[in-house]
Nucleic acid binder design. Sequence first.
DNA 1: TGCAATTTTCACGAATTTCTGAAATTAATG
DNA 2: CATTAATTTCAGAAATTCGTGAAAATTGCA
Lengths: 201, 201
Amino acid sequence: MTLDPKIRDLVLHFGEMGSAWGVSRSVGQVFGLLFVSNAPLNADQICNKLGHARSNVSMSLKELQSWNLVQRQHLQGDRREYFTTPDDPWEMVRNLAEQRKQREVDPTLTALKSISQPAPTTEAELYAQARVDEMIAIIELLTGWYEDVKQLETMRLAQLLSLGAKVQRVISMTDRLTLPLGLKTGSSGVDRQQDTGRSDP
Amino acid sequence: MTLDPKIRDLVLHFGEMGSAWGVSRSVGQVFGLLFVSNAPLNADQICNKLGHARSNVSMSLKELQSWNLVQRQHLQGDRREYFTTPDDPWEMVRNLAEQRKQREVDPTLTALKSISQPAPTTEAELYAQARVDEMIAIIELLTGWYEDVKQLETMRLAQLLSLGAKVQRVISMTDRLTLPLGLKTGSSGVDRQQDTGRSDP
DNA sequence: TGCAATTTTCACGAATTTCTGAAATTAATG
DNA sequence: CATTAATTTCAGAAATTCGTGAAAATTGCA
């Protein structure tokens, strides 16, 4: 790797964090490199700097594009394709949030709903249904909020965030507005019974 | 698997989603089962219902406890340990958020800061530094907001969420309050230069 | 303390994922 | 349209993660 020490460290770290973020080490490193890169890079440059196989870089770039974290870019007078991360870091955060929602919560919400669909038959299913419905309600509240705020322009979003929980002051004035769900302050509305203590045979 | 169809489907789905959520299939299934379980289960019961090896269940439970998504529970008159998910589904959401922050963003923030620490030496490092600093600012804004709202009791949190972007109305009245960072409305403040178009040799 | 039930650890094989190099495909240029 | 640079696909090697069963450790109880 012919990289400045700080950049090399960052690339290495993004590689290691890859697994925590659900991508491979290669993908993490390619992103790290592009993220701090002064200028767009082509696949061969990435190869050289990172020491990955050419095909691996190709795959990594494809995956990063599927996350909208890397954009291709044509340079006139050059046949090769160049790649960058978005100039605006907020855009990366937005894209990351959007993709993770699509990959992690949307499928789960769909599954939960399909579970909740047919009427429960057994006692166990009745309880399961109640639990699932509670979780559906929470997820819909969260995703609803997300859909809402993601429309905000960055400036406004930053303001909203920096306001934090101070919005509470305002909420106390809006108690007359839609109170969501049938929320109770204590534990959930579903009662869980105690087991007999014997394993089923 | 001796499970009702709906419960079996849910267990299977949570198993499949495991990889998207950064846990193994086994772990996902155990969580799914406990989540919809009417009553606390012991490890052997989980074994039987899921058909996993006993040791595998032990590991899965350990991991789920590390996420605070599963709690152990002693039952009097029974030597075995029983396991449940929290009664309050909001608690699960909170724990999930907290753990993901700790595992995914905190280490990255630390790494970014350590990159940002020593003064940049080369041209490339100077640009990298600027990019990193921008990202640090965003992450701190986001985590600051999170630290803030996670203190809220569930009721208030739900209200805040259901309010969504409507809080905007309020923000317009608070423009005199702290405007965060040196935010610009357009792209970021860091300029990226164009590449020469030649690979480095 | 000794015993038996339960849980955990660990090494290993199975399964999955990641990465590579060669071959195939695509696309630009004369 | 042919040539060649560039990219992508793909089969399999390498590496990692997952899950099992046996053995070790722990725990509650007599």
